[in-house]
């Protein structure tokens, strides 16, 4: 495997995103409008409700952000990339880039949501860690599923239905972790089992992506 291509590929993803700024703006607007809709619709979310709403926003924003990874470039150009670089490195670059993108979106959603509702989060460092873990996990699952769905026509719907069962354990663990962030800083909370579970799930997913991705890209 030739890892030298990783950085140029990451750079390519960023340049591409910057050139197609409207897509990025679309996702940002999506997050902001979802927060705004919740602000108008709901009275005053209780901490469990806040947790649920927040992670639902993240979930749908993530799907929408990642779904385009494999369709924004033409098939011919992708074939060219596969000849230049190892497919595993290519998918790793996409996963890393998407993780970064989702972390940014998560930060945006947190700030926007905290502005319109009073945020129950007390431990910001743990919350940031949760967000980072969530971004990585979602990025792996959604990038892989969107690679499958990119081969079919109805892309966005397919990504949603294919990935919900897969990300369900991740989502539930993340929601538990972020609920732990609502407790006052002095109280001891046990977060390591959840973090360990998430890392284990991520490891399994990454291994599967590496093994299975070569079967997806060739047509």
């Amino acid at each position: 495997m030739n890892w030298r291509n990783l950085l140029p590929l990451l750079h390519k993803e960023m340049v591409l995103e910057w050139r197609q700024r409207y897509a990025l703006s679309g996702i940002v607007l999506y997050v902001v409008s979802m927060v705004f809709v919740i602000y108008i619709a709901s009275v005053k979310p209780t901490p469990p409700m806040w947790n649920t709403l927040f992670w639902l926003i993240i979930l749908f924003a993530s799907i929408n952000a990642v779904v385009k990874s494999f369709v924004r470039e033409s098939g011919a150009r992708q074939l060219y990339y596969y000849q230049l670089a190892d497919p595993a490195v290519l998918v790793l670059a996409k996963v890393l880039y998407n993780a970064f993108l989702l972390l940014m979106l998560g930060g945006l959603a947190t700030v926007a949501f905290a502005l319109v509702t009073s945020s129950p989060v007390q431990r910001w460092s743990l919350f940031t860690g949760t967000l980072a873990l969530g971004s990585v996990s979602f990025s792996i699952a959604f990038t892989f599923i969107s690679a499958i769905a990119a081969k079919a026509d109805q892309n966005a719907t397919l990504v949603a239905i294919l990935s919900f069962p897969v990300v369900l354990p991740i989502l539930l663990t993340l929601m538990r972790l972020s609920a732990a962030c609502f407790t006052p800083a002095g109280m001891p909370v046990e977060t390591w089992p959840d973090v360990r579970n998430l890392l284990a799930v991520d490891a399994i997913l990454v291994a599967l992506v590496f093994v299975l991705f070569p079967y997806i890209w060739r047509d």
Binding site: A141, F144, I145, I148, L162, P165, V166, P169, V201, I204, L205, L208, L212, Y215, I216
Partner: peptide
């Protein structure tokens, strides 16, 4: 591919 991925997850 999806069958294996989903079953493993």
């Amino acid at each position: 591919v999806y069958n294996i991925f989903a079953f493993a997850s």
